[in-house]
Structures are given as structure tokens and as C-alpha cells.
Design a protein around this nucleic acid. Structure first.
Lengths: 117, 117
DNA sequence: ACCTCATCTGAATGATTGTTCAGATGTTAT
DNA sequence: ATAACATCTGAACAATCATTCAGATGAGGT
């Protein structure tokens, strides 16, 4: 049951192929998806917003979003893996800061968008 | 078990309160989250990218991302509810186009980000 | 009226996700 | 070394999500 063959009725093959060609490469598209996924959670958004202003340690961040240390730690790991934040150890504590300049503009633009809509 | 009280040990209350005050209003923050959620799926990203170039009908879009008409319809409903796309009926077919200019810049910025990372 | 085609809807399913709990790791101080 | 504290990890759970299937809606043509 190949869909490209079955629905030859209304599909405008030309348009579709044009759109397909202009589509970004799989890798880049998936990369963008991952970044947007990271931004698609209220608490992560709060964390990133706070970190866009100053470095904070794990328990500061936990207090900020009012969840367990464990929960923030999990989230920070995601953000770290996605290279949106980086960490720095100082004694017992670990301080986090933004790793990526671009993220801040994405964040701002998303917020601006939400203000207007 | 209030976390703000328990962990008075390492939490820098000043920093936290400052960050809390600067945090965008709940409503805006959740709004931004919703927009990012819409962008956090490869197929929706493909759909939006294609629509950023020209109007397309449902079955074109289904062919583009190679899923059922039903699946695209569900996704388009999400995008419509989020006001990212709008639809126009022409005979039996329904054509979709971007509803929001800002989305395109978010999309582009996300992709640019993914290219560099 | 009927039939066909394009799109939509609702229920069901499997996959992913955010959180918590309990316990592990690593650091500092005594 | 032992204790105390900050952070991390893994398992478990509920919630959310993307897809499909089957059937509904709505428009055109005969």
C-alpha cells in the first residue's frame, strides 16, 4: 500500500516534489526538532530563561521551578546533552550556564511570539 | 515537605527571587511552550517548511511526509488550533497556508541553529 | 437520488516524556 | 574514615503524543 501511488488522484506531484527538494536535509531537520523539543517544556523554558541572566546551581534551579533536585538534574542532563547548557563544578556544587548564544534568541523570539498572539 | 524551606542550605535565595521576578508571566510562558511544542516534531516541521513556500492541500501534505491522510489531518488540526496555519476550502479540497509570519522566522532560526551545531 | 472522492473525527495502540522515589557518586570538613 | 551535603542515576509511574483504522461529513458529478 504505497501512498504515493494510491492517491494519484488529487496529489499535485509537481508541487510535492518541489517541496521535497527544498526540504532541509534529514539530519538538520532532526537537529532542529531536538532543539525545539528542549524548548517545549515550561520548566525547561524557565530554567533557560533564568540561566540567560546568570549562572545558577542545581538547587537554585530546583527552587526556581519548585521541583525535586532529581527532576531538575534530569532536565539539566537533557539540556546538557543537547548542548544548550554547560556545567562547572565548584566544590560540592555544580553551576550551570547557557552554552549556546543562539538559544537565547530562539527563546526570546518564542516569548515575543506568545506575547503578540 | 516544602522544598523552598527544606533546602535552605545551598539555595541562594536572592538569586532565585531575582530570577523569579524576571520570569515571563505564566500565560506567556505557556504560550511559548505551546509554539515550541508544535515545532518539536519532524513531520510538522516538514509541513510548515513546505507551507512556507506555497499553499498545499491535505493530500499533497500527506504525500510529502508519507503518512496517512488521517495523520496529516490530525497534525493540521493541531497547527490550526495553535494558529500556525489556516485553511481554505476549494471544492472538495482544502488548502493550507501559514497563518503566522513569526513562525517562519522561528523555523528558520531553528534550522540555522541546527546547521551550525 | 446516488456514488465518488477529499477531508475530518473518535477510539485504540505503542512510544515518548516528566516526575518522583530510593539509592549511588563525589566533594568537603571533622 | 566517617559524616554531611550536593548532585546524579535508574527504575517505575502517570500523562501526553503520533499514528493508524474504521467510520462520519461534506462537496461534485452523474
Amino acid at each position: 500500500m504505497d501512498k504515493d501511488v494510491c492517491q494519484t488522484t488529487c496529489v499535485n506531484q509537481q508541487k510535492v516534489e518541489r517541496a521535497l527538494q527544498l526540504l532541509p536535509e534529514q539530519e538538520i531537520l532532526l537537529g532542529a526538532t531536538e532543539i525545539f523539543k528542549m524548548l517545549a517544556d515550561p520548566n525547561r523554558l524557565r530554567l533557560l530563561h533564568a540561566l540567560s541572566q546568570e549562572e545558577l546551581c542545581v538547587c537554585d534551579l530546583a527552587a526556581l521551578v519548585d521541583v525535586t533536585d532529581s527532576a531538575v538534574s534530569h532536565q539539566l542532563r537533557l539540556l546538557r546533552t543537547a548542548r544548550l547548557v554547560k556545567s562547572r563544578r565548584e566544590g560540592k556544587m555544580v553551576y550551570y550556564q547557557l552554552d549556546d548564544e543562539h538559544v537565547e534568541s530562539l527563546l526570546q523570539e518564542g516569548l515575543r511570539h506568545a506575547e503578540e498572539g
